[in-house]
Design a protein around this nucleic acid. Structure first.
Lengths: 339, 339
DNA sequence: CTTCATTCTTTAATCGATTAAATAAGCAAT
DNA sequence: ATTGCTTATTTAATCGATTAAAGAATGAAG
């Protein structure tokens, strides 16, 4: 790779010291330099197509203008969309984004934090995995700015941007009830993370509030390690073991995708034999023969808030921790009833 | 942010020079240092939880172990999936990935190249936009390693990893013909990029080879600036102006998504009133009431090849340019015929 | 003709790690 | 005792940019 021109090259060309060149090229300091020299330096910089070496700048300043983004999986549309908005917001402020996928594994998440931290990212935006409390505490201790998104730990005081999972789940399941379902199953992850617990609690609570007894056959918590089979088993039980359900609430996008595919294979007709609601958008859901009622998360606001809070924190470490909880929207379509 | 311990901190703690510490901690050089000192240094490093500052390393070595990834849009599943695989492959080799979305705009692409280049990325993986030939030439001139993916410029000798777009389009449309369609429309982008031209040429050629005359109503090239309306108009013309078509070939994922939604609105039944094939996978397509016949691109191989070629080039600038063209697979489902 | 202020420019340290080269210390051979 | 040879350690330069502080040059005031 051809060596890029440095301050030194300009300095030599013009016949001044690198300090002078630096003063000319760094805004606000130009007054220190005579108009004549300034002009020559600028001309030389242009001629050589000088671009400052950000690595050198970073070493001196201790700032890299880089954000580390750690999500469960960048290829998951939910996170890919968030990543895109974070990218745009960050770019506006001259920040770049380095990303990594944790696959919901605390160990991978920790490796990523170390890895990116050694690369001196100025801060992190993290969708934390289960059992990563220690990592979050570590970041706090080290005074490394970060914002949690999508999930957070209620026991740790930190910046976070999430949605009202409890209300969202409550509202989604209430919709099923209003449309006539009484026996309702839920398929969620067996995950201790707060957002997932809240979704389950939303389900539980709305059932209780409507005096609907929940059979212990109806709550299914799937392991990340084998989502597909988990969902298939859950659906088999929900539909075929007594008391069998009239409706299913899927707690995430991915669960719903596997679920709907399997329902198709079983020739269960959604909207007729079975009512369904799900969390998250998905191109797939629009195309489904029976358009899906879903909980829509405000991805744009989620990402924008995260970047804003992070950059604030980076610029002023004394900023107090901020917890943002955003409202979701229940997009009502046909799948929540049964004809 | 608490200052992280540096070599100097260890050196002071142990009472030796930073050079000695560096020799202990950098593998292969340990033999230079006495066992006694070495032990002390290692203990101190551990105690302080020393993590080398990659920025400083990079400045010295001129290597950042960072790849710049520039795609059209990281939230597009096609690119999001590629990004994920690139991330994994890069991580294996201790590289991180910085990404940026060009939105198919040459100007944005140029800004990103400059931006990431100033951050001293070791190389780029780029899905180039239209009219970005100069940018690619610039990278060549500067001897900056890069690999083009998805698209490339036949006039510029460079690394690239693409698929056989011509054969893929040919095969997809031939399938429509074999299933009885003779009047076939195509919806593509009005884009001079080679991959798009090849897809159109595949369509043209297979029609010619089967002695099917293509009406000038049938080739629709949509602007990026207004995809949705472009697709709607195209479909209106294809279906309602004589001679109207029996089948449509969508040249990308995104075009098909808009197209199918609109067909739904028009109550056109795919697989009965109209045959359809599309490029690219999409969760949505599996769910479509009439599962879609698609051209499946080998995303894994695409990304793996790109990383491998790039890293080779980074490690040895004299490596000859490599052009990889991968085979696609036609996934045959129901949408390509009409009952 | 000093003296002091002002303006412009350079020197040199710094960020954190690496590494060639210099130095120091220990020991053996003559 | 001198020389040479190892081995262990330090010194100092380097990567590229920034910036406080020192220095030089000019001019004005006394």
């Amino acid at each position: 790779m051809k060596r890029k021109p440095s301050l030194k090259d300009i300095a030599e060309k013009v016949g001044v010291s690198t300090a002078t060149v630096s003063y000319v090229l760094s805004k606000g300091k130009e007054s220190k330099v005579s108009a004549e020299v300034s002009k020559k330096v600028k001309a030389a910089a242009k001629e050589l197509n000088y671009q400052p070496n950000q690595i050198a700048k970073s070493l001196k300043s201790g700032k890299t203008f880089t954000i580390g983004l750690i999500v469960a999986d960048i290829s998951n549309p939910f996170f890919a969309n968030i990543a895109r908005i974070i990218e745009d917001e960050a770019a506006k402020l001259n920040y770049t984004v380095i990303f990594g996928s944790s696959d919901e594994k605390a160990e991978k998440s920790w490796d990523l934090i170390q890895f990116l931290s050694n690369r001196q990212v100025d801060g992190f935006i993290i969708a934390p995995t289960e059992n990563s409390e220690d990592q979050i505490k570590y970041l706090k201790e080290q005074n490394i700015p970060f914002v949690l998104i999508d999930r957070f730990f209620p026991t740790i005081n930190s910046n976070s941007v999430t949605v009202n999972n409890f209300e969202a789940a409550y509202g989604a399941v209430r919709r099923l009830i209003e449309k006539g379902s009484e026996k309702i199953g839920i398929i969620a992850y067996s995950n201790s993370l707060y957002h997932m617990r809240e979704r389950v609690r939303g389900y539980d609570t709305v059932m209780k509030d409507h005096k609907l007894k929940v059979s212990n056959n109806w709550l299914h918590e799937i392991e990340f390690s084998d989502i597909k089979n988990g969902v298939h088993n859950a659906i088999d039980i929900l539909l075929h073991e007594k008391p069998n359900v009239e409706a299913i609430f899927f707690a995430t996008n991915t669960l719903a995708v596997y679920g709907l595919k399997y329902l198709d294979r079983l020739s269960v007709e959604v909207g007729k034999d079975l009512a369904v609601v799900s969390f998250d958008e998905g191109e797939a859901f629009d195309f489904y023969y029976c358009p899906l009622t879903i909980v829509k998360q405000p991805l744009g606001a989620l990402a924008e808030n995260a970047v804003e809070i992070l950059i604030h924190k980076i610029n002023d470490l004394d900023t107090k921790e901020k917890k943002v909880c955003l409202d979701t929207e229940l997009i009502i379509r046909e799948s929540c009833g049964r004809k």
